[in-house]
Write a protein that binds this DNA or RNA. Structure first.
Lengths: 196, 196
DNA sequence: TTGCTTACTTATCAATAAGTAAGTACTTTT
DNA sequence: AAAAGTACTTACTTATTGATAAGTAAGCAA
């Protein structure tokens, strides 16, 4: 709807990934957009609503991708997922799950359940992709796809958190190791150039 | 040294794991210990020093464990590591790395490098254990032990973060999946009762 | 006994947080 | 043309933050 509203959400998204939810303020956003503090309160009366909007936008982006690429095989969809995280890694950014889950206890109920939805949605998407990739023989792994998906998400999440601290090459080392465990026929170096 | 100082560190540790570093305040600590705000400033003039002390204590605990159990085989040491994380999981707590790394950008240099030291130390300890366990035939995995250690730490870290949100059984599902990948001869259900 | 340190308290600070009330300018609807 | 809604600004309030200054009581040391 409103362009300002979208700008606020996008900026809040960046700030959350950089500093966390509790460490960024309305003033941080207002300063960059050159509007007053209260203008943000007009669009998001309380901070929790802004947080929910940021998470919801991420959910929409993800569902939008799934809808547009429903025809692609699981293996290819997973490449896009890893590619997205890789781009984050290069920007020194973490994912929303990695940024928000540690502060979970400080959120109100509505924001908690929105975050819950995001975590479940990503995991289920990955699980569907893994299941399909295993059925088609493009990947090989033991155990339930949903548990394996948790491990995949886990690796992506923490490789972003840790590579920001221990060095940016850690992301690829970790993800490549994981891809080997999945019996994937590709590695991070095969990814450059894939578009969303 | 001072008992109060130790109490402050211990309480700050809990608060950081529950809410994150930026979301807890000197007042939170003071209220529980029934002392005044300024008493904490006496022991830790600035908040960063308290944060560093919390991380340093964790480092000391870890090094203390390694020193005391240097004789144990890698496989057994890793069981203890997983057991420690499992106990955290049951308490609904996350580990210091999981709690602090997302807020990395908001810390001053000293606290950043202290956190860095902790991350590296845990990873190197796990790598040494894995290397030894592979050499002795108790575990089987491909690739460099240091990269594999990153994956192990990653799984433990994010299983705590995610199980707090998606359900406590997720921890065991993820860790058991990972242990299978390592060719370990044990699972989380074999752990109850191991002491530090 | 004097001096110094330890471990605080009381009282207060400036800065910053989220949030609100009231007003203004522009646009759309009736 | 009047009314109503949209998108703000100005100008606050209230609460909390980390931090500091000044004082104090207890204990130890020469």
């Amino acid at each position: 709807m409103s362009a300002t509203r979208e700008h606020i959400i996008s900026l809040a998204d960046n700030l959350i990934r950089q500093k966390g939810f509790n460490a960024f303020s309305y003033s941080d956003v207002a300063a960059v957009l050159n509007i007053r503090n209260a203008a943000i309160h007009y669009h998001f009366p309380v901070k929790s609503l802004l947080g929910q909007a940021v998470i919801y936008e991420e959910l929409l982006r993800m569902e939008g991708y799934r809808y547009r690429n429903a025809g692609l095989c699981g293996d290819l969809q997973l490449r896009h997922l890893v590619e997205t995280f890789y781009q984050n890694s290069q920007r020194g950014a973490v994912c929303l799950m990695g940024a928000l889950t540690p502060e979970f206890a400080t959120f109100d109920e509505d924001m908690q359940s929105m975050l819950q939805k995001l975590c479940v949605a990503i995991r289920e998407w990955a699980a569907d992709c893994l299941e399909e990739a295993r059925a088609s023989g493009q990947m090989q792994f033991a155990g339930e796809a949903l548990d394996r998906a948790a491990l995949l998400v886990s690796t992506l999440l923490s490789s972003l958190l840790l590579s920001r601290i221990e060095g940016q090459d850690l992301f690829r080392r970790m993800v490549d190791q994981m891809l080997e465990d999945l019996g994937a026929g590709w590695r991070t170096e095969d990814l450059q150039g894939i578009k969303n």
